[in-house]
Amino acid sequence: MNILLWHVHGSWTTSFVQGKHRYLVPVNAERDAWGRGRARTFDWPDTVEELPLDQLCSKDLGDVDVAIAQRPEELDLIPPHVPVIYVEHNTPKGDVPNTRHPLADRDDVLIAHVTHFNELFWDCGATRTTVIEHGIVEPHARWTGDLERLAIVTNEPVRRGRVTGTDLFPRFAEVAPLDVFGMGVAGLSGVTAHDDPPQHEMHTEVARRRAYLHLCRWTSLGLSLIEAMQMGMPVISLATTEAIAAVPPDAGVLSTRVSELVDAAQWLIDEPEAAARLGARARQVALTRYGLDRFLADWDRLLEEETCASR
């Protein structure tokens, strides 16, 4: 099957393109948001081919079987004969829980949410919806926890502020040194910022920290959280959005009381055996629920259904 999709979310796309299909990714000279082409910091197979953006816009692509859209603006660039599945990565922004999805009440597209929380909170009207939960390429790194430090992986915490729980960082930094990894972390005070490190290096370093902090108040389920769990890390998380479904009680500590999470961080710093026990369970759960094979099988089933229905 020939699948057209834009390089928007690198981590999610890395999992998606591990399937058995041919993937056409638009590219332009600027390699900007509309034509990034193949990833340069993720390992993508040779079945991912770059498609010049001007060719997509100027001709009818007869060999495309289905398109995966991730932004509303992409719909105008997709040839009209091609069936479309819209992947919704994000929680709604706006008048929650009454936020209307930009593709609400359409009969020409299927919205595939990445979490059940997202499907519940978006108002999609009469548009068909489904949920395909995340699946990831298992990281090579394994948790050791030999450093009495805490790790966070998040993007743009300075700009996003309360959304990513940036205001909560100092409370945990009082317990143990806090390392924050991701894009746009430069400028954070009171922590050690690791700005946009290569993924494999980041995994190795994160896995040495005693516990993983997930302090996002309002976000879809972060792939970095699942990666930490598959590496065998114990999790300390706000009990918000999909995290409460992803992290069972015996794999971490979840609460909406920040003081309880701060106490949990101190406990895991002081008790490495407890951290190892929680981390082992986190790895077991994440490998089962968010494994790559299940993810690709779910997508194969949906792709086959949608392409058959359009014939």
Rank of each mutant, 00 (worst) to 15 (best):
L61Q: 00
R311I: 07
M202V: 05
I136N: 07
I269H: 05
D108M: 10
M229T: 07
V114E: 02
R162Y: 06
W143E: 05
V258R: 09
D195A: 09
L147W: 04
S237N: 11
L56W: 03
C124V: 12
F121K: 10
Q55M: 08
A243R: 14
F42D: 00
I244E: 09
F117D: 12
D46A: 13
G252P: 03
M1Y: 08
N28I: 09
S310E: 15
P139R: 04
D298N: 13
Y290I: 05
I269V: 12
I78C: 14
G94W: 15
H203D: 11
G182M: 11
A176V: 09
W122C: 06
H140A: 14
R71K: 15
A176F: 00
A246G: 13
E174T: 09
S259G: 13
H203G: 02
T164D: 08
V191L: 10
L221M: 11
A186Y: 04
K59W: 01
I226G: 06
R149Y: 00
L261M: 11
P198H: 10
A104T: 08
D65C: 02
R209Q: 15
L147A: 12
S11C: 01
L261P: 04
T154Q: 11
R289M: 08
H134Y: 10
G182I: 06
A126N: 01
P45H: 06
E133V: 05
E119D: 13
V262E: 04
A33T: 11
S15F: 02
T192F: 06
L75N: 03
G182D: 12
T166A: 13
V180S: 07
Q266K: 11
L268Y: 03
P249R: 14
V285C: 08
I236N: 06
Q230M: 11
E260C: 02
D195Q: 14
W34N: 04
C57M: 14
P198S: 04
C308N: 08
S58L: 05
V66T: 00
N2E: 06
L5K: 00
K93T: 14
S11G: 04
L302W: 09
G182K: 07
W143D: 02
P52G: 09
L51S: 03
H140R: 11
N98E: 10
K20Q: 15
I68E: 00
Q70T: 15
H113N: 13
S224A: 15
A246Q: 05
R100W: 14
L292Q: 06
